[in-house]
Structure formats: C-alpha cells, structure tokens
Design a protein around this nucleic acid. Structure first.
Lengths: 140, 140
DNA sequence: TATTATTATCTCAGATTCAAGATAATTTAA
DNA sequence: TTAAATTATCTTGAATCTGAGATAATAATA
C-alpha cells in the first residue's frame, strides 16, 4: 500500500508554517485575540488609519469576514469606524487609545516571540532562506 | 506612523505557505473537495485502512471535525466506516472503490501541480531549503 | 442629464471548525 | 471482581469564514 509524498520541500514547508501558525494562535489566545483580529490590529498599528478594504487586502479575507471582525473589535473598544468625508461609501478604521495601548503591550512580546522562532538561523542562512522562499513564491 | 515588521524570513515564509494553501484550495475545489476532505482521502490513499484517530493525528484536526468530515465523505460514497472487531470503541475507515478511483485521477495531477510549484529550485537548493526549514521547525 | 458600470460595505445563509461534554468500551489497579 | 482511569468516537453549541446578493455612493459615458 504505502504510496509516499515525493516532494519533501513542500511537505516540510507546509508543516513548518502550520506549526508557526498554531504557536501564534496560542500566543494570541492569551490576549483573547484570534489571529484574524490580531492581524487587523497589527495593520492599523503599523499603518495607522486604513479603510476596511485596505485592511482586507492586506490580510486576505473576504468583505463579509471584515465586517464581522471589525464589529467584534469595535464592540471591545479597540478600534473605531469613522465616515470618510470625501467618499461616503468608505469607512476609515483607526485604533482607539485602548487599542493602541493594548498593541503597545502585545507587539514587543510578539516580535520577540517571532525572532526566537528564527534565531536558529544566522544572517547568511536567513538571507539564503528568504532568497529560496522568494523563488518559490514567485512561481506559486 | 509606519511601524515595520522586522523579521523578513518569517514574513515571506508565511506569505508563501498561505499562497500555496490558496492554490491547492482552488485546485481541489475543481474536484468538489475542501482541503480537509482531500487530506483525509490522501491519508487513506497513502496508508490504506486507518482509524479515525490516526487520520486526525496526521492532519491535526479535532475529533469533532473528524466526525464531521468523515460523515460528509461517507455520504458521498468515497469512504466507509467499519467496526473494529478487536476494540469496539474503534472505527476503521477505508476508501471505497469510488474513492480509490477518484484518488487515482486526482493524485497524479496533484503531484504534478506541487512539483511545478517547486521546480524553480534545483536539487542543491531544495536540499538547503529543507535543511533550513527543519532548523526552524525544530525550534518552533 | 440620464444611464450604466464600478466600488465599498453590509447582510444573510451555509459550511467548517473547535471545545466541552456525553457515551460507550477497554484497561488498570485495588 | 469491582471501581477508577483512560480511550475512541460522537453530539452540541458557539465562533468564524465564505460567497452571493443587497444597498448605497461614486464614476464614466452617451
């Protein structure tokens, strides 16, 4: 029986990224945030005011999910919706003071956490790694 | 404003794996299968008869989700549940003739598809890639 | 200007996931 | 042997995601 998967790079890549995803999920559960919620807050923290669509494009989820996740975060007082005066279809989203404060606490820990996961690679290895990943990504 | 993410390997790894995941999702949608459903069929195709728990451990989803996905695939006649005579708590799952036939069609295309995504790497690069990924995975 | 197309967001139904608990069978240990 | 612990699967409810379609605003064009 035993038919094998023959593409090792593929297998290990998917295993590794899934493991990382799980770890981040656990980490964020401590802050009562799903990964999607964290991703939204992260975009706002990094880029400041964004439209709902801009955020959706960044984190690649559907418009229906965006409405849902923005609702949740708004209810918790971590961000606010603001009408756009130029284009009344558009809604701007920004972190509230509470949201910003929370991210000031979370982000340094998050960066440390991510860096730890990759500290087994020295600078040369990291560069090679990125270069190989980009080769793959450009084809996908 | 503009606070940046400073860990490039992490960023590109997650982007790449997400892109691959999306591509496989599209590919499997043509066969009316979700990735989870395909993963279950793949395990059975590769390993033959398995218990529900064995499959769950392979593809890392909860027991509740396993019941759900096995139900769906059983309803479509792609696999069957069989009581285990040694241990009556256990249920063995096997591909039906239909399920096996479907996988005979899908798997060669799937392997080609995956190989294409990685064909930009030559043998040396693939080996380096795997080695670096393993370094990261072992820490995560 | 009036019509048409596009865009941004929201609504809703259906699908999928997990966590917690239920059930039933087996194993361990007193 | 009996009681307790463990194991495998299923059930249920809540959360989240997607896709299709609705709504409303804007842009493009005849």
């Amino acid at each position: 029986m035993e038919r094998k998967c023959n593409n090792l790079p593929f297998l290990i890549l998917m295993q590794t990224s899934k493991a990382i995803h799980e770890r981040i999920k656990e980490e964020m559960a401590q802050n009562k945030l799903s990964i999607t919620e964290f991703s939204v807050l992260e975009v706002l923290y990094q880029k400041g005011k964004q439209t709902i669509q801009q955020i959706g494009n960044c984190i690649l989820i559907s418009s229906g999910s965006m409405t849902y996740v923005i609702d949740k975060l708004e209810q918790r007082g971590l961000l606010s919706r603001n009408a756009c005066s130029d284009d009344r279809r558009v809604i701007h989203v920004t972190l509230t003071a509470d949201g910003n404060e929370l991210m000031n606490v979370i982000m340094p820990k998050y960066h440390d956490f991510v860096n730890q996961m990759f500290e087994s690679l020295d600078d040369d290895e990291a560069e090679t790694f990125v270069q190989l990943l980009k080769k793959v990504r450009n084809i996908v």
